[in-house]
Computed example of a mutant assay.
Amino acid sequence: MFQQSSTARVVSPVQPRKLAKVPFVEMADGRLQGVVSSGSDIERVYVSSISAGTHGFSCSTNNNRPCGGLYGSPCKHLRSLVAEAVLQYGAERVARYLRVEAGPDDDLLSCLNGSVEATPAAAVFSRFLRHLAYLELPVTATGAAEMHWFPATGVR
């Protein structure tokens, strides 16, 4: 039956997340990446990422201005990104994705051995904005055509 269905199982978050601080986190394109709200300016967001394997890290505003707290080591935005990813996916899964050896009680950022790596923010920010646009669609029983492959949740 599952093979004949156009739906897939949804993996629930390990723990509830703080969407106001980190509204978007994903493990995609060989990176842990996401959008992190600024602590000082409500209208500013940062796109932060850590590459799997190399552990190169990047943090910049959505218009590619570098983060002022990125001085050769991970900034507070990257710390928030990792913390929320652990809540969303679990520490073991995030560590496995980043290809880092970390114990269950280890701080994942302290286990990384990367350096600052320029990563364009536009693709991640664009994906985040596309996800936000779905929140503005009117409620319908038939769903949006471009989302026909999304898993059914049974919640209306």
Rank of each mutant, 00 (worst) to 15 (best):
G69T: 07
L81M: 07
M27V: 07
Y71L: 12
A133M: 10
A121G: 15
V100P: 07
T61I: 09
D107M: 05
E43R: 07
L70F: 05
A91E: 00
V124G: 03
L132F: 03
D105M: 13
R127N: 06
D41E: 02
A85L: 10
P104V: 09
N62T: 13
A52T: 15
R44Q: 09
R65N: 11
L109Y: 08
E43Q: 09
P66W: 00
V116I: 13
K76E: 10
S48P: 04
F57T: 08
L81S: 00
G34V: 01
R31T: 11
G39N: 09
S48Q: 01
N63A: 13
D105C: 12
Q88G: 05
P66T: 04
P74S: 05
V45M: 06
V36I: 11
V36P: 01
T119Y: 15
A102V: 09
G114F: 09
D29S: 06
D106L: 11
C67K: 01
D29W: 02
A121H: 12
A118T: 15
E84V: 14
Y97G: 08
A91M: 01
C111V: 12
V82F: 04
L87D: 12
T119P: 11
G34C: 04
A95P: 11
N63T: 15
L78T: 14
R79C: 14
T119E: 15
A83D: 10
L81E: 02
T61H: 01
C67L: 03
G68M: 08
A85I: 13
I42E: 06
S80T: 09
G103L: 12
Y89L: 02
P104D: 11
V45N: 03
S58K: 03
G69N: 01
L112K: 08
R44Y: 02
I42D: 00
G90L: 11
V94H: 01
L78H: 07
G39K: 05
R96P: 04
A123T: 05
R127P: 06
R44P: 02
A52M: 04
S51Y: 01
A102G: 05
P104G: 12
F125Q: 04
A95Y: 13
L132G: 03
I42H: 03
A85R: 07
A123L: 08
L129D: 01
V124H: 04
G39A: 08
A133R: 05
A91T: 03
S60M: 15
P66M: 06
Y46I: 03
A123Y: 11
Y46N: 03
G103C: 09
I42Q: 03
G68Q: 05
R99H: 11
P74G: 06
G53I: 13
N64G: 06
F125K: 07
V124E: 11
